Amino acid sequence: MTAHPEGWRKSSRSHQRTSCVEIGRIGNGAAVRDTKDRSAGYFTTTGMQWAAFIDAVKNERFE
């Protein structure tokens, strides 16, 4: 049986925009989906992968 993500939420920086992503909790990681097409599903990451991604965003490694 596959676990389902819980607690979907958008970033507080998204305000009322509709083109953004939502993050949900799943096990020891995160699930990510597109708010424009929630029915398309989501992808999951481990806790370590998610922490590395957030660290890279905060340190502007994608600029």
Rank of each mutant, 00 (worst) to 15 (best):
M1H: 08
T2S: 08
T2V: 12
T2D: 05
P5H: 02
E6R: 12
E6A: 08
G7E: 09
W8M: 06
W8Q: 05
R9D: 01
R9T: 05
K10P: 00
R13Q: 11
S14E: 03
S14W: 01
S14R: 01
Q16T: 15
R17D: 12
R17S: 13
S19E: 13
S19Q: 12
S19M: 06
C20L: 07
E22A: 13
E22N: 06
E22R: 06
I23V: 15
G24T: 07
R25W: 09
I26L: 11
I26N: 03
G27A: 09
G27I: 06
N28P: 00
N28C: 02
N28H: 08
N28D: 14
G29W: 09
A30P: 00
A30L: 11
A30Y: 04
V32D: 02
V32C: 04
R33K: 11
R33S: 06
D34S: 06
D34M: 11
T35N: 14
T35I: 10
T35F: 03
T35H: 03
R38D: 05
R38G: 03
R38A: 14
R38M: 09
S39Y: 09
A40E: 10
A40F: 03
A40R: 13
A40I: 09
A40W: 02
A40Y: 04
G41K: 11
Y42Q: 03
F43M: 10
T44L: 08
T44H: 02
T44V: 15
T44C: 13
T44A: 12
T45A: 10
T45G: 00
T46H: 08
T46C: 10
T46P: 07
T46Y: 08
G47D: 07
G47W: 03
G47P: 04
M48G: 14
Q49P: 02
W50T: 04
A51K: 13
A52H: 12
A52G: 14
A52S: 15
F53E: 05
I54Y: 00
A56M: 06
A56D: 11
A56Y: 01
V57L: 07
V57Y: 00
K58E: 14
K58D: 12
N59E: 04
